[in-house]
Amino acid sequence: MGINQILNYKLVNNFLHIYAIWLREFKVYLRERSRIVGSLFTPLLWLFIVGSGIGSSTTLSIDVNYQKFIFPGIISMSIIFTSVFYGAYIIWDRKFDFLKSVMVAPISRETIFIGKTLGGMTNSMIQVFMLLIIGLFIGIEYSLVSILQIVFVSVILSFLLTALGLGLGSRMHSLEGFQMIVTFVVFPLFFLSGALYPLDNLPDWLLFLTIFDPATYAVDALRNSTLGIATYSFEFDLFLLFCSTVITTLFGILSFRKMRAV
């Protein structure tokens, strides 16, 4: 076997391993119907109850109704919750022996990490597509370009956050850790992202905090492509999202390498 063939063989196998891990996650997701319904219900509550409720007594400085305004924010929220939860779910996996059976296979921790991250990303993206359809009913207008932009930004954000969730989850050893992640990661990510309010008139201290939330840039980019409203430029948003993704991916991989198998 020549060196090229060996490399080729290794590469093909590596893809196969990642595919195997992803396939497992995807099949499990499709079979847990209650999870799909449940995860779609929360964004709908926000969009229709909070959106209509607050929207009826709030006027934004920009000429758009509140419900439409928070729609990109609700897409982000759905990604934040699904991705981070999915990642943190690894605490459960570790409680049972399933993860051990994967960790004892002759594949690298990076492979497991990438496979799982893609799995979480897929779950999030399925929800994004469902939300995009719902968007039609509240009067959001899409173009081919805007759809591509939305998908692109959503893919990056869900990869970024699944990696974060996996990294955090793999360092936790008790189920209480899950609650910690919800309180100290998921909610701040959501509330600071500008999903529910415009960034323009914020007090300085709050604006300062939003800068450190990667979801801020995803919300901004999504609002840019769906409504044409934005604080930063689309390119700037993408750039910061990329940087954040690199950071959380490295964090996730390092955490996975260090993760105790038993």
Binding site: R24, K27, V28, R31, E32, F96, D97, F98, K100, S101, V104
Partner: peptide, 13 residues
């Protein structure tokens, strides 16, 4: 090959 103490097959598959 290994069979762990606790069940480790994926029960959704």
């Amino acid at each position: 090959g290994i069979v762990f103490q606790a069940p480790s097959s994926d029960d959704m598959l």
